[in-house]
Design a protein around this nucleic acid. Sequence first.
DNA 1: GCTTCTATGACAATCGAATGACACTTGTGT
DNA 2: ACACAAGTGTCATTCGATTGTCATAGAAGC
Lengths: 230, 230
Amino acid sequence: MNARVLVVEDEADLIELLRYNLEAEGFAVDTAEDAEEAGVRIAEGRPDIILLDWMLPGTSGIEICRRLRAREETATVPIIMLTARGEEEERVRGLATGADDYVVKPFSLPELLARINALLRRSNPHLVATVLKAGDIEIDRTTHRVRRAGRELHLGPTEYRLLEYLMGHPGRVYSREQLLDGVWGTDVYVDDRTVDVHIGRLRKAINPGRSSDPIRTVRGAGYSFDEKFK
Amino acid sequence: MNARVLVVEDEADLIELLRYNLEAEGFAVDTAEDAEEAGVRIAEGRPDIILLDWMLPGTSGIEICRRLRAREETATVPIIMLTARGEEEERVRGLATGADDYVVKPFSLPELLARINALLRRSNPHLVATVLKAGDIEIDRTTHRVRRAGRELHLGPTEYRLLEYLMGHPGRVYSREQLLDGVWGTDVYVDDRTVDVHIGRLRKAINPGRSSDPIRTVRGAGYSFDEKFK
DNA sequence: GCTTCTATGACAATCGAATGACACTTGTGT
DNA sequence: ACACAAGTGTCATTCGATTGTCATAGAAGC
């Protein structure tokens, strides 16, 4: 069963972009351009998550958010605020109002998708794939457990996120910079080479004995989780 | 066998919300918009629990409640009153009338579900999972007793709820924030780290001697009750 | 062989969790 | 009303786990 996403946004371009990409990810997408329409869409069926533009003509996103939280039917629906740069200071206010997360425009699709999935995993785990598998490696995001050939492995937080990130798109090569952004976050300043060290630690952790290494080093480019890994 | 819930409520939105969520929880849901219809539904088959709106057009919820209590077929059916904010003062009158519990709108679904389950557990224990077991730990939600290897343990209220919550989904990792929401309630503002303290107290209470610890700390993520705990 | 890029062990700094102490509330029995 | 016991939320401290860098060794490319 696909998760239903309601996008409340007044920019037609952005709506189309989101609809296209979210549907490609398997979400059922509803859209609304203002508070009124949003109300109608919600009445038609409770969405599983709401993307809400901060600034909207008429009733502002923050006000909509407040109202959604006040109504019992929608009090627990996860909400992600879409805020424009420069409104970041409002962040605290936004979260205080009841939004569960926020992204700053212009945002990257992968980032938005990651946040949507993270929230859904928390509120409706059954809507999201919680287990990633490849070969004899298995990672369960609900229980935070990683197994290889059935045997449980212990990974530090960073190694865990790194593996999760790499396994998200097996075969795809990520540059060190991409890994830093995706795993460490865009706001931290860490040396590129640190990635090497953590890849090394991850390898040591997931390759006990002399099991084959699923992580491929691409000289001059970065790393990838081998899609053909068995 | 699923428990039958009768919802007596005149707001169509709320009815839909309740039907949707209660059915998702495995209840068989009947609805009625007024006293007359409620009578028909009850005649069709005795519900295991009734959710009753306080204010209804025509015969008020409180009056319906009184009548249900007067008839012997329905005298013992648990009733939860749905009251709007501001009617709280009426609480005592409501309970005196015979309702077993009440929730104030807007209520959170988890809270309502918890109360429904609590009442059913009292009236029809066989309809509800009453005992949670894992390894040699056993918690009886009817009596609020906790045993380890047959020996009874003493837990404070918060520790009890914490354990109950964690054991509800063994293996699942809950963040401190989730635990605060689920165990303390969404409206309390308590420091994240307080969870640590209570986890510590819970551990001390359920691990007498040097018995193994079923609670797993997931660094950077939260805690979980070990699903593989033996 | 020389250059460039990656792997790895060592290490100090930092972080997160566990724990004991303590002040405050709440509830109960007298 | 009062005293007492139980239960709670914060804090400061402690301690092991984790992290980011660096220096050095090892591979790969040309």
